[in-house]
Write a protein that binds this DNA or RNA. Structure first.
Lengths: 211, 211, 211, 211
DNA sequence: CATGAATGAGGCTTCATTCAT
DNA sequence: GATGAATGAAGCCTCATTCAT
């Protein structure tokens, strides 16, 4: 009954929880599908990727896909949620114990760049999420922003940062990270060079103004 | 999505120059299509928008579309090129004559935010361009970056800016602008609030570090 | 009102006589269209050729086509009729005055091969005529066969040819000519080689059987 | 005709091998499509036949077609290959064991005529193959010619046939067969009459010249 | 005579999804 | 759990033809 991914239907989606495998064989199949999806989406983008592409890469039959996921949109959403979760975990682990905010920012950028390099396949299409599921898209960035906001607020209260609007700072930092990552990691497939990292840190901490 | 648009074919596109209307009636129709496309793409995104959507909104027959554009991709590319051109023009006009770099940046951000507010329909999908035509996408940002780089270099030589890598600065500034614009203009449909503007300027010019 | 070339409608066609130009300027345009059509049909075949192709090659506007011809099918039919007429004329001129039937056949084959070489563009698609206008197709070959039948009958009565069914002989001769022409002229774009011509004549006059 | 089938793309075709059904149900569907295609192509010709025509006649959904064949061109090519294969098999079986070349030719013609009568649907459009896939077209006739050439050469060496160019003889024989078949089988839907068969055999073996 | 914009029916193809096995 | 055949809606695009200028 070909419904085509008609409009966002987050409510329904929340209900129709993705199938939970009961056996280890099932769990393996499910994982194969997720791995395949990550690669396929990354290479072709969400819209050009087809579920046949995914099942082919996963080495399972087309029907098998629907045993584990209600639809194309759902496996994508799961990947995005995982991505968000993993990124936040990696960052928070990396900065735990650091005392200076300067170090926190430096580590944060570095971890972010290495994260998107590792997950460049999927990260490449983050922006498409907006047109797959707008709520999911906002959720992704808001969730990320939250972490920043807290840290930034603490730094301001501790006197390490000047007093500015924390949310704006959070989005600005994310913007910088994304664009620098895009320029070197996604476009060139390379690490962000040291001079760029230094420049970013210099800009962020001390601004552009000469003295 | 039933696309087809087989891979990027920039070579072919360069050749098959968009049709040049020979009468004013034709020119009007072409413009109707362009306007309709801008709105439709903005609302549904590139992939979910169909050329039927566009012709319906433009009030012409489906076949008429193909009198003026070789395909869906081409009208999109033209819109992106226009967008880029207009944005650069508006910014350069706005900063002409300004002497202090601080003012240039302030004006630049302000103009950018009002620009994407005016063209929020189309701007909303800039990121999708990458999956429609990767070269076009890179061209868009590189072209934008160029302008920045020159200005930033001049400011460094003039002693107004500290010495940092100009390209990195350019991408960082674009990232900030995009994310702040996304947060308030695209998500909320509002102007960027003064506190955000101030924060951005403060960050950019003087950094986050206290004193 | 897109009718698409629906079914053969020879009756209607006979009525809707192709437009007769009244001025020499008009006659020139008409001829440009016919020339262009011959080439375009020859290269792309009837079905893949479009009337835009023809008007483009002729250097006139699309609408102009319909000033001179009721439709795509009609210009094609006219070309086929011309072809048939010219071929018959060339052959009959070439064999006029020849006394021996052997010479008549030899000349006939030679003229046919040089004719299709000259008109290979159009001749290449003779077989498609069947699916454009079945009656026209049969008319073409029947008309050609007629000439043969008369000559063959005369040769039989004159004792030059053995007594066989003249119509069968006519079609057999046409088949030989077409296939030999196809093999060397249409496929290779060359003249039919002497050895082939000799073989054909030997076969036709004296058969394959070793004395 | 709204085709699309962009130029000959034999390379791609070689790769995208027609789908091999994995179940008997699938095999049955595939065969239904092949049968329907043979009829539809025969009646309407390749270009006027649509894949909807085929699926309707086969009683399956339009999409099902593409489960088994990459496109219209491909099912057609398969039919042509089958046709060629079957024809050669039937002829070679029929002449196996015959000692006199005269008998071989007589049987060959007879089998050919009954073959095209049985497959008149498809055979009717053999000539269109040239404009669908030129290579396939030449392959068809060259392959057929090969068989003839060998037989003819053997007959010459055995002293049964006069020494002539074997390839020319092969194409001439094919031409005769096609045109006689066209005249009676394809045009009239009848068997080739005895008088025509006799005439053909007479011509071929002993020529037209009166002793 | 000539032009070129406009039309809309119709063709090919893709693909998310369902379902019987 | 897994399979793979089947579906049909929907998308892109072509083109013969009409018509106002």
């Amino acid at each position: 009954m070909s419904t085509k991914e008609s409009a966002n239907n987050s409510a329904a989606k929340a209900q129709a929880k993705d199938f939970q495998a009961k056996t280890s064989r099932g769990e393996a199949t499910r994982q194969k599908l997720l791995d395949a999806a990550e690669e396929v989406f990354g290479v072709k983008g969400y819209f050009r990727a087809s579920v046949v592409d995914i099942t082919l890469k996963a080495g399972v039959a087309q029907g098998t896909f629907y045993v584990y996921f209600p639809g194309k949109q759902d496996i994508f959403a799961e990947l995005v949620r995982e991505l968000n979760h993993d990124l936040r975990r990696e960052i928070s682990q990396a900065v735990t114990g650091l005392t200076s905010r300067r170090e926190v920012e430096a580590r944060g950028f570095a971890v972010f760049f290495s994260f998107i390099r590792k997950h460049s396949n999927l990260y490449r299409i983050m922006q498409q999420v907006e047109f797959v599921d707008e709520d999911l898209f906002k959720w992704y960035y808001r969730r990320l922003a939250q972490g920043y906001v807290q840290g930034v607020e603490a730094a301001m209260e501790g006197g390490e940062f000047r007093r500015l609007d924390p949310e704006t700072v959070a989005y600005a930092l994310m913007g910088i990270a994304e664009f620098i990552g895009m320029r070197w990691v996604l476009w060139e497939g390379k690490d962000v060079p040291a001079k760029a990292l230094d420049t970013v840190m210099g800009m962020v901490m001390d601004g552009l103004h000469a003295d």
